[in-house]
Nucleic acid binder design. Structure first.
Length: 188
DNA sequence: GAGTAGATCCTCT
DNA sequence: GAGGATCTACTCA
C-alpha cells in the first residue's frame, strides 16, 4: 500500500473537463490504510454512502468535500471491499495552467495554485460529482511519462490535519518530493 | 514571521 | 445537531 503511494509520486494527473485539458505532476500524497487507520473514513469497517467508493475496485476517484469548502481528491488503490486510498495533496502544474488560474481566480502563477488538496482540486476542476469516476476514463486519468523521482528525493512525514486520530496521526504515511515548492509546508 | 480564529456545508449520529 | 483527510487572513510581536 505504501509502495503504491510512493509510485504515484511523479505520475501525471490529467483532467479534461469542459473541453479544457489540465494536468500536473504528483509531488505529495498521503496513504490511508483501510479499516485499521483511525484517520481514514473507513476505520473499523465503517461503510456509508459517502465512502462507499473506497470499497470499490482500485482505479477510481474518491472525491469528498471537507469543511464545506475544500474538495479532496483520492485514488482508491486496492481491490473490492478493501478500502485503501491515497490522498493527492499537491501537484506541480504541467498543462492548462491558464485554465487553472482562471478556476481559482488568480492572475499569475504562484506556488499556491496546486498546493494543498483543496486548491489542487479546484485548479483541476474536480468536484463531488466526479466521485466514483474511473481513472481510466477519457476525462480523468493518471498518466505515466516514464518520469520518476529517485528514492533520495522522496521524504516521509506524519500526515496533516488528522490530529483527532490519536496514535495513527503520527504514522509516517505522507510522502513528498524534497524541496519542491508545490509541496504544502505545514507540518503539525 | 508566527500563531490563531473564522469560514461554511455535507454527512453521520 | 455536531464535527470534519483545510486554507486564508488577520493580529501581534
Amino acid at each position: 500500500m505504501l509502495q503504491i503511494a510512493k509510485e504515484l509520486l511523479g505520475k501525471i494527473l490529467v483532467t479534461r473537463f469542459d473541453g479544457q485539458l489540465t494536468s500536473g505532476r504528483i509531488v505529495e500524497v498521503e496513504a490511508y490504510n483501510g479499516v485499521i487507520d483511525k484517520a481514514a473514513h473507513s476505520f473499523g469497517g465503517r461503510r456509508t454512502n459517502r465512502n462507499e467508493v473506497m470499497y470499490a475496485d482500485g482505479g477510481v476517484a474518491y472525491v469528498y468535500l471537507c469543511y464545506g469548502i475544500h474538495h479532496l481528491f483520492n485514488v482508491v488503490t486496492h481491490s473490492k471491499d478493501t478500502p485503501h486510498a491515497i490522498l493527492i495533496r499537491a501537484l506541480e502544474p504541467v498543462k492548462g495552467i491558464d485554465e487553472m488560474l482562471y478556476r481559482v481566480r488568480k492572475l499569475k502563477l504562484d506556488n499556491s495554485l496546486t498546493r494543498g488538496p483543496g486548491n489542487l482540486s479546484k485548479a483541476l476542476g474536480i468536484f463531488t460529482k466526479h466521485n466514483g469516476l474511473s481513472l481510466r476514463s477519457k476525462d480523468l486519468y493518471i498518466g505515466d511519462d516514464g518520469f520518476e523521482y529517485a528514492k533520495k528525493e522522496i521524504a516521509a512525514s506524519p500526515r496533516i490535519g488528522v490530529d483527532y486520530a490519536g496514535d495513527d496521526a503520527l504514522l509516517p504515511y505522507r510522502f513528498y518530493v524534497k524541496g519542491n515548492p508545490y509541496v504544502s509546508g505545514k507540518i503539525k
